[in-house]
Design a protein around this nucleic acid. Sequence first.
DNA 1: GTTGATTTGTACCGATCAGTACAGAGGCAT
DNA 2: ATGCCTCTGTACTGATCGGTACAAATCAAC
Lengths: 189, 189
Amino acid sequence: MVRRFADRDEVITEIGELFREHGYPATSLSLITERTGLGKGSLYHLFPGGKPEMGEAVLTNIHKWFEDNVFLPLIDESDPQTAISHMFEAVTTYFRSGRRICLIGAMALDASRDPFAQRISDYFQRWLETLALALNRAGLLPDDARQLAREIVLGIQGALVLARAIDDDSVFIDEIGRLRKRSLTLPQR
Amino acid sequence: MVRRFADRDEVITEIGELFREHGYPATSLSLITERTGLGKGSLYHLFPGGKPEMGEAVLTNIHKWFEDNVFLPLIDESDPQTAISHMFEAVTTYFRSGRRICLIGAMALDASRDPFAQRISDYFQRWLETLALALNRAGLLPDDARQLAREIVLGIQGALVLARAIDDDSVFIDEIGRLRKRSLTLPQR
DNA sequence: GTTGATTTGTACCGATCAGTACAGAGGCAT
DNA sequence: ATGCCTCTGTACTGATCGGTACAAATCAAC
């Protein structure tokens, strides 16, 4: 008897890290039982829908983190520049300066995409929308705000890919710096 | 008897498309036999090292395509602006305006990365290096050339992730346009 | 035609997969 | 203590996995 009451959120977090390390398709139930210390019975009790439900739970958990720490502040913070600045800090921390991949972005690229297409799209659309709103409130015209929001979100994603591909954090750090500067030098409305 | 002489390059191309669709870890030998029309015996005859050798072959094939169509022109073309412009056209075609993922980038993000880390890194380093060289020849200081090369390569990668995540080609097209413009408006050396 | 080499396809192997069944263990109320 | 519910772990299932063995088919040279 290894564990008595599994903390669902903690299990979801652990599963999420496995998905980041191996990808969703290549993360087996054996890897999950090892990492979490839970037997199969426990896992199926917590996630009766099986592996797909684990995938949904992990994506929901990540989206919630971003909602609380990035998206809502982009909407609610009275000073949009402060909210945007905070977003860069939050993602630098969350993505561990480029050493931790964006699982949702990675899932867009492999066989996970089809089963989770809506969730993947919702997360990115939400990010683009809230960031564009903040940029607009900071002084950009709506079209320019949307374009810059795209540039920022894809820049973060690209920096994560490249940093990992060449094993060099500075790619991520430098790009965050560039995008931060980019968002501060806004044309006047 | 379905095929007599399998064309190795054609088989490599077909396998590469499967890897793009499913990811390397989730592409089974059954999928490969179906797609290529070759039996297992044939596949192991062509790739005695098995699936890892197929992975290597596909990565080598992609790197060669880029070497011939992007990297060497960036070095050899007498007019660097022409070579950079041609690179944007080549990648737009190769990545099908964002509808075809960069397999090497995707492999940086999943469990494929460890076995193929050197190849993945070499490809991106080569791209960065040749592009920086062309940008330098076009007038940028070496450090600025390296930074802009990074911005361009990660921008392309990020655009591929985002375009696929939200199922919108215009993300890729627009970013290529932005990067192209960015590379044309160089500070004078 | 025969022979040898090359290429191909299929049966087989042990291992692993996600999921199922269900007994065992623990906690709580009576 | 007992009974019920919740949570857990393990054995089992059929399917699929990558790889192996090897017979069959094809081709080229003589």
